[in-house]
Design a binder for these strands. Structure first.
Lengths: 344, 344
DNA sequence: TATATTTACGCAATCGGTTGCGTCGAGCGA
DNA sequence: TCGCTCGACGCAACCGATTGCGTAAATATA
């Protein structure tokens, strides 16, 4: 059992060098008004004595921490956890901590989490909205207090903040185009809540593709899932395939529901992709495991996380930035077996 | 744009009631030496004025935060992210934050993370060790400073801390027994690093099962993967199946490698489970998606996370606890298609 | 009634940095 | 030589809550 050695502080360094604590404080962060040699001397002593800056103290004084809050729906989903992985990497490289809170897709929980994070005096916030959320007042506290907020993936059009997204419209368009190219003519869509713009845009891309190809848009084969769970996907597929005029393809707004569609098809002897082509979204690991392998749309989760983190950090550095950016990452259709009807 | 209203503090409450800040501080946490009416009065004012306790200030004073650190290998793995989900739920219910850091299975990174978390003055720590880690000095700082440390899943026998685990030996035994019951006689094992006790114990359970059934233990079909990735699993399976005397079953210490085994088999026309039975571990989502569905061993990730969080919180409450517990959760073999050779 | 206890609360130091403002000496132009 | 600028650093007031110790008043004990 080691003796509990007292932490050494800037006061210790100050008295060792016979200077004031303020000088030490400034020297440690290369303040312009501190002389070159003084800075060196201070840092040398700090190193020798094993000085560890006390972030808590700094946070108290500045009333702002070096912690980045992350609000997401569920952590245990491939896209989300990968995104967080990216966030954590960038943040920890910059010496920031990441604290997470899950909304479980509940609006009320999201509000509670926002309050909790604000009370924790986070220095920045990264948000992927809950499925339910349609009002956004709970973020104004952060904006009013100059706490940078960056939205990722599930963003809101109503808020003027930095955003990191993919082009969901283009993605929906490309995905649907691919299905059409493969000869599908009656393409169903299983989307997410139309209040989440990402799902709306995917759907609009889908509609656009149909229209460009003079394919009738049939509302009766367009669905908006609640949370796009496996069960939901299965149920909707069941409904679709029992229609008098069932679709020859399903474009799902996530892989979970798409995989369910394939499984329904397998259980009922419907051949994929010959009878039913299935296109997913996200490129989750399961898309490579399912048989037939699932065609899907790439979703650069880790990169989106990294970029979101960088945006937050940038705003923390330069508080004078008053512009907001929307960063759009590239995405592409990944063609696999579940849609490949024609030889290439 | 709302005016930046100043936060109200215990001083505000104190002056409103003409008492001292210390009284307010104590009243807010029901200190025994504060009168009943005073406590009520203080809380009333606090409520009315919208007082929000400043955790930073408290942390500074107490030199300890209400933040729980979580050290894991990779966040974007089903077991880990589910575990974190459980941790986060329990912690946030108790008003604690959760900050995470990934080691990427690197020992050096784990040490760096431990330092960073210690510097962040976390109030508790939950650890699932990196695959590489074989020395544990980097945790003594926490123990020496009475910061509760709880290990989950990937624990160390060398440290006398609270642990939350499953009975890996029994699990390995049961899983292997099941394979034997299904008529397998030459069962290979794809394990993890034998320095991680969980993998060692799974392997020992496997060996025990063989011995109890008078099956020869053949070292040449027992492997210790590096990180048990899909690639590793595939490569090892390839090696195994090219042996002059290939196995009729593979017991893998995780689902990732097990799925790779199935995929290798499918690619090479080896029928599963008839020619090769495959047993996984973890009950990852993919185990239900792969065809044939993968038999595996349940791993109650969310519960393990919750319990680990509770242990940390318990130690924070009662600092007088000097005992350590090892909590073992129930686990069971989940029989699916990949091992089911006999009708039931 | 004088003394011992208890109850209920105040005082003031403390946690470790941060930062606006003040100061002091050196260098510089006129 | 006078006044001025500028570089380099110190002073001291914070930030908001916690806590050991002290004490006055109320109650109990002798």
């Amino acid at each position: 059992m080691k003796p509990k050695k007292r932490e050494i502080t800037i006061y210790d360094i100050a008295s060792e060098l016979n200077v004031s604590p303020s000088t030490v404080s400034r020297a440690l962060k290369d303040h312009y008004s501190i002389g070159k040699e003084m800075i060196e001397a201070v840092k040398k002593v700090a190193r020798e004595r094993g000085y560890r800056p006390n972030h808590i103290a700094a946070s108290l004084r500045k009333n702002k921490t070096n912690t980045i809050g992350v609000m997401i729906s569920w952590i245990n989903r491939p896209f989300i956890s990968s995104m967080i992985s990216g966030i954590e990497e960038e943040a920890s490289n910059a010496g920031c901590n990441v604290i997470i809170s899950q909304s479980h897709d509940s609006y009320d929980q999201e509000i509670a989490n926002a309050r909790a994070l604000y009370n924790s005096r986070i220095g920045g916030l990264i948000v992927s909205l809950a499925m339910e959320t349609r009002k956004y007042n709970h973020f104004s506290t952060f904006l009013d207090n100059d706490i940078p907020v960056v939205f990722v993936d599930r963003v809101s059009d109503e808020l003027n903040c930095d955003k990191v997204v993919i082009d969901n419209f283009a993605a929906g368009l490309m995905a649907t185009n691919h299905l059409i190219e493969q000869g599908c003519r009656r393409i169903a869509h299983v989307g997410g809540s139309q209040h989440r713009s990402i799902y709306k845009q995917r759907m609009m891309g889908y509609v656009e593709a149909l229209q460009r190809n003079n394919i009738e848009v049939d509302e009766s084969i367009i669905f908006s899932g609640d949370v796009l769970s496996a069960e939901e996907g299965y149920r909707i597929t069941e409904h679709l395939m029992n229609l008098p005029n069932p679709p020859d393809a399903i474009f799902s707004a996530n892989d979970t529901a798409a995989v369910s569609a394939i499984q329904y098809a397998k259980h009922h002897g419907i051949r994929v992709p010959q009878k039913l082509a299935v296109m997913g979204f996200n490129n989750d690991p399961i898309s490579l495991i399912i048989d037939p392998t699932l065609s899907t749309v790439s979703h650069p989760a880790v990169d989106m996380g990294k970029i979101a983190a960088r945006q937050v950090l940038k705003h923390r550095e330069h508080k004078d930035i008053i512009t907001t950016e929307t960063i759009t990452l590239k995405t592409e259709v990944i063609v696999r077996e579940s849609t490949l009807r024609k030889r290439r």
